[in-house]
Structures are given as structure tokens and as C-alpha cells.
Design a protein around this nucleic acid. Structure first.
Length: 155
DNA sequence: GCCAACGTTGGC
DNA sequence: GCCAACGTTGGC
């Protein structure tokens, strides 16, 4: 069992959107970054826990919990010319991009803001990629200690 | 809207 | 393989 943080822009796809999907589940398509892909393709497993993070919005922060709901499989949007995520360089017989399905678990009682997380950058969250300057990874691993610390801030 | 940081691309 | 140019991310 592993822990992850996944970013989403709420104006594109929010935690509420996930909660309102059929089976509260959504394929996490459109990731076009190799590091993020490698984690989804090679390391994620069904049942892994996810911190759901809202980025590029008024109050960026962790807003809820989700879980990995499938094994990894090729991202079909890479081979769909009508998709914003279409990648003509990806050969469908040898797919370049992978994803997992993500299922809603719950909202946090409050948003744990990036500002609050950053205030622990030299303490409990030292080394956590999210609070490092210039971090742009949309999917990142969370250690069990970081996971329990972040959730301990909730209430 | 600005801009720093970083990843990707492509010429050489 | 180097590296400049360019595009994207994402906080502020």
C-alpha cells in the first residue's frame, strides 16, 4: 500500500466533479510528463491512497482523499485526434502514456492550504516535493509519515 | 497578468 | 551530447 498526492485544477476537474462521476470514479487522463507517467504506470496499485490537491486556483491545497481504483493502462486520449491530450507521436501499438482510474473517498473537513504545508517545509514535511521551490510534478509520492502528518492538520 | 522554474525540442 | 529557445506549470 502506497500513498500519493495528485494535483488537479478545480476549474478543469475538481474533487466535487470526481464525487459526482458514475461510481465516483474517473480515468486520470491527460498526464504528459514522464516522471508522473512512470509513477502511475510502474508503481501505483489498486487501493493506494491519494491526497487530492487543487492547484492553480485562489487557495491551492489538499481538499480530499481518493484512491487508486484500477491497475495502470494506456491513456486512450493520446490516440484520439479529437482530444486535447492527443499525442501523434504515441504509437497505439506501443503506447507512450498510461493512467489509472481514481475513485473519490471523502472531502477533508477543511482545505489544508499550500501555505500551511509550506510552513512545515523545514520540519515534518522536509523533502516533500510539493513544498520545494519550483516543483511542477502533478503526481508525487507521499511517505506514510508525511501522510499522517498532513491529515493530522485536518482537525 | 506576471514571472520563476523546469521540461522538451531541435539545431549543430 | 550540448545548449538555446520555447512552452508549460502554477504560485502569487
Amino acid at each position: 500500500m502506497q500513498y500519493w498526492l495528485m494535483k488537479s485544477e478545480p476549474q478543469v476537474f475538481s474533487l466535487d466533479d470526481l464525487a459526482n462521476r458514475p461510481d465516483r470514479t474517473e480515468p486520470w487522463d491527460g498526464v504528459r510528463n514522464y516522471q508522473a507517467r512512470n509513477m502511475m504506470r510502474d508503481q501505483m496499485a489498486r487501493g493506494d491512497h491519494i491526497l487530492f490537491y487543487h492547484s492553480n486556483c485562489a487557495t491551492p491545497g489538499v481538499v480530499g482523499i481518493a484512491e487508486v481504483a484500477s491497475a495502470s493502462y494506456p491513456d486512450p486520449t493520446a490516440h484520439d485526434p479529437a482530444s486535447d491530450y492527443y499525442d501523434p507521436k504515441s504509437d497505439p501499438t506501443k503506447p507512450r502514456w498510461y493512467l489509472v482510474d481514481v475513485r473519490y473517498v471523502r472531502h477533508l473537513q477543511r482545505t489544508i492550504t499550500l501555505a500551511e504545508l509550506k510552513s512545515h517545509a523545514d520540519g515534518a514535511l522536509a523533502g516533500f516535493p510539493l513544498v520545494r521551490k519550483g516543483n511542477r510534478l502533478s503526481v508525487m509520492p507521499v511517505t506514510p509519515a508525511q501522510w499522517s502528518f498532513i491529515l493530522s492538520l485536518e482537525s
